[in-house]
Design a protein around this nucleic acid. Structure first.
Lengths: 110, 110
DNA sequence: CTGATTCATCGTAAAAAAACGATAATAAAA
DNA sequence: TTTTATTATCGTTTTTTTACGATGAATCAG
């Protein structure tokens, strides 16, 4: 029990799920929101705004970066992050391509 | 350690994160995809298609229903599900309203 | 060079998620 | 009424996530 079954789904499904997972926590939504407003900012500014410890924020940033949603580069002793808009566009495209199919049917359940 | 901090974020952020969490597993993406194609179907049909046990699929369906992404009603001994398209539209709206703000800036990191 | 700042990483603990088998509940069929 | 088919729920185990403090690494200021 508790075996990994994620690999048995299609790559597209896995990618979409991975993106969704990246934004599936309010803290990460908040981080993205800050980045969207300020265009770019350093880790410390984000820590100031969020109700979380520095190490926790750093962890969330890492996850967002691993998922490809943000870019980051170190600038002296600090780290500067910004949103990777291309990744968001790809998400929108994939998301729609999965669900646009029968939208016009406007199904009523059973 | 391990304290719930989710409540300390805005309602909008929490809702968006909850939606994303619902679609953050490939099995649930696959379920939604099946429903989108077939308009509606019963639990058993989904179980046939997925590489998961019946109880696991039922659990995923419950999560999707709790998140408001699908509707379901029992039809005799079986349960019929379909997609709640309104919920998807709301997600799209909220998603864009959070992130559309600075898109034109096309930021380059630092 | 020393000290201060800034951030990432490590270790750890608690909570939640994922998966299954077994069992209960429900309604149709016999 | 008894059986059968279908689905939901319960109990359990393993894994993953969330969160923190403490420690390290890197750079700037003095």
């Amino acid at each position: 029990m508790a075996v990994h079954k994620k690999e048995e789904f299609s790559v597209k499904e896995q990618n979409l799920a991975a993106f969704a997972k990246a934004i599936s926590h309010p803290a990460r939504i908040a981080i993205l929101s800050v980045l969207a407003k300020r265009n770019q900012c350093i880790c410390g500014e984000i820590v100031e705004v969020l109700p979380l410890a520095q190490s926790t924020v750093s962890q969330h940033l890492k996850e967002l970066k691993n998922a490809g949603l943000i870019d980051g580069e170190t600038d002296g002793p600090r780290s500067c992050y910004c949103i990777n808009w291309k990744a968001f566009e790809k998400f929108n495209t994939d998301f729609n391509s999965l669900f646009e199919k029968l939208k016009e049917a406007n199904a009523k359940c059973c």
